[in-house]
Nucleic acid binder design. Structure first.
Length: 415
DNA sequence: TCTGGGGTCCTAGGACCC
DNA sequence: TCTGGGGTCCTAGGACCC
């Protein structure tokens, strides 16, 4: 038995924690570079502001309805998320953090008759301690818990248990296909053609047909909806790829600026890399112009390292060399990014490769010193000079709220 | 003027091998 | 006129998730 906990309108709710004056007002949160709408409060949803719409298309409408607009503040959301997960882990240690605002809990040891009350307790605690509302869905498989969570969010009380067979059937009968976890627009359309319209139809369809048309994913999904658990609780796995990319705040035309940018992104990515105790064997660097304009240009270059590495400076060198290969003068670049690929475990490498010690010795101490300094004194206290420059191409965030919980200088003032 | 970022998994098809 | 069978590995692209 699984429970899925999902924070309601997470980013918008985070913004409200330290701004109680915004209670009842529509709030939207924008993506990086103030591009698209990525979160909406309930009031904003009621104004029919679509998810994912480019902000400039709806700016006037928002102004007219006095919508409060925030740039995204990931330090804040990340910190609140960490606190939510800590509370959950106090109730049930077996927790799988699925995303910044969602987690599965193993409910198999909770007696059936206590499940609902236990869920209420969790919900009330998070509300009381953090001011964040959550929805909790309970079901015999992860996919069913997801379905239940969808219903829970629409309920006043925020909790829904789908495990009773009759309730399950009734719920699935009206449950739209593309709301099911793992079925997107494309697959839903495919199923419609086959005369399958809701969760119940899908569940009852001939397994052979589903397997044939949707492959193993479909087969697994169908089992999950039938209460046969195929997806278990998972441990945190190290990432297989680490990507860092960002659109620019303005158009970029000079190669030096592109190199500054990828140096900065590489710095971020390699911090993540060392944080999960991995080494990278290759880096891909890509640059692109505005994809909504004519003559859209994009290209990437890859560098393979002689030995797996975690060394920021070495990786930045490779990244800037890639930019040299890619750069075409005269174009207006809109975005650049890097991907660390073929990640491998550092411990494994040290144990299996005789010369590993040698190849890592030079950088290991330096990297860990840099990480420690940056951890203690703040990000980018010490960094590669390649990052230096005007940096005025950096993304826009014209309306970011203070980092209330992670930066002493941005604490909430109480007058 | 303005259009996000970061992931995973699966599949089909090509290159290559014996 | 006729042109096998079985396998691996890699890559690009699709689909999906939040």
């Amino acid at each position: 038995m699984y429970a899925l906990i999902d924070c309601n309108n997470f980013y918008a709710s985070c913004e409200r924690i330290f701004r109680p004056d915004l209670e009842g007002r529509p709030i939207v949160v924008l993506s990086n570079n103030d591009g698209c709408i990525v979160a909406r409060s309930r009031e904003a949803k009621e104004l029919d502001i679509p998810m994912g719409i480019p902000f400039f298309k709806i700016k006037e409408y928002c102004a007219k309805h006095r919508v409060v607009v925030f740039s995204s503040n990931y330090q804040l959301y990340g910190d609140i998320s960490r606190r939510v997960m800590n509370i959950l882990a106090q109730f049930i240690p077996d927790i799988e953090i699925y995303s910044i605002d969602e987690a599965f809990l193993d409910f198999s040891k909770i007696p059936a008759e206590e499940r609902i009350n236990f869920a209420y307790q969790i919900r009330d605690t998070i509300k009381k301690w953090l001011g964040i509302s959550v929805g909790i869905g309970i079901g015999p498989t992860k996919t069913l818990a997801k379905v239940a969570n969808n219903i829970a969010k629409k309920n006043e009380n925020g909790v829904f248990d789908i495990s009773d067979p009759q309730i399950m059937e009734k719920t699935l009968r009206r449950f739209a296909l593309d709301e099911i976890w793992g079925i997107g627009r494309r697959t839903a359309a495919k199923l419609h053609v086959m005369g399958i319209y809701d969760g119940y139809d899908f569940r009852k369809s001939p397994p052979k047909l589903i397997r044939q048309k949707l492959g193993v994913m479909g087969e697994r999904l169908q089992n999950e909806l039938n209460g046969i658990s195929c997806l278990k609780m998972e441990d945190v796995k190290p990432r297989r790829n680490i990507l860092s990319s960002k659109s620019f705040g303005r158009k970029v035309t000079r190669i030096e600026e592109l190199q500054e940018a990828v140096a900065l992104y590489t710095t971020r990515a390699t911090e993540k890399l060392r944080n999960q105790n991995s080494l990278t064997k290759s880096i891909s660097v890509f640059i692109l112009t505005n994809r909504f304009e004519e003559n859209y240009y994009r290209d990437y270059a890859t560098h393979n390292f002689a030995n797996p590495t975690e060394n920021t400076l070495e990786i930045i060198n490779a990244a800037t060399a890639c930019i040299k290969k890619l750069f075409k003068p005269g174009l207006k670049y809109k975005k650049a990014g890097i991907i660390l690929m073929d990640l491998t475990s550092k411990n494994e490498y040290l144990q299996t490769d005789l010369l590993a010690q040698n190849s890592l010795a030079k950088s290991a101490k330096l990297m860990s010193a840099i990480d420690q300094i940056n951890q203690k004194h703040g990000k980018l206290t010490i960094f590669s000079a390649t990052v230096l420059g005007s940096n005025d191409w950096y993304m826009k965030a014209s309306n970011r709220s203070p980092r209330y919980t992670t930066d002493w200088k941005e604490l909430r003032n109480v007058n």
